[in-house]
């Protein structure tokens, strides 16, 4: 419903022959004015649509049950129940992941219950990590919680690491 209201507003604004008293013109004239303007409304709606490239963002309100795989960056602020494969994976404060996280770089400020396997791992002060961390380069800030092993992984042990597209 609100969408239609929005459209009406857009029609009034974007119509080139924008006479102010259009609302008071007789019905047939209004109908004629609205119809040709309808296609031009859609790009206006598209303007609010985010572009297809760039990092994926799993917002605070989103819960995913299943696997995520991307050849680009992923930012998680919501909840994921499953494995995540990305290039640079950021798990924001308040986010929760149950599963393994693979990537070139993994930055954790939220909670992971599972495993991290990445070339570069950053655990910030609010990180809560339950499970093993396999890394080549790790930074742990004061306040981070870890319940698990931190061990260096070789390039060979992990296919994802061997596939290094971006050297760190």
């Amino acid at each position: 419903m609100s969408m239609f209201n929005r459209n009406e507003k857009e029609v009034n604004v974007s119509s080139p022959s924008g006479d102010k008293p259009r609302e008071f013109t007789p019905a047939p004239v209004t109908g004629a004015a609205v119809k040709p303007a309808t296609p031009s409304v859609q790009p206006v709606v598209d303007a609010g649509v985010s572009k297809s490239s760039g990092p994926s963002v799993i917002s605070k309100a989103l819960k995913i049950t299943g696997q995520l795989e991307s050849s680009e960056d992923i930012r998680i602020d919501g909840e994921v129940d499953g494995d995540i494969h990305g290039v640079s994976v950021t798990v924001g404060a308040g986010a929760k992941v149950k599963g393994s996280v693979y990537g070139q770089t993994v930055e954790l400020a939220g909670t992971i219950e599972g495993k991290i396997e990445a070339k570069k791992v950053i655990l910030t002060g609010t990180a809560h990590m339950t499970g093993d961390v396999i890394h080549q380069d790790i930074r742990i800030e004061s306040g981070a919680y870890i319940d698990g092993h931190c061990r260096p992984g070789s390039n060979r042990a992990d296919g994802k690491m061997a596939d290094a597209r971006k050297p760190n």
Binding site: S53, A61, K63, E69
Partner: peptide, 20 residues
């Protein structure tokens, strides 16, 4: 805050649930 964006490169095998 309530808008999620799954980019071109992302494949999700599973369910998505959100109020946003």
């Amino acid at each position: 805050l309530f808008k999620s964006h799954l980019s071109k490169a992302l494949v999700v095998k599973g369910d998505l649930e959100t109020d946003g």
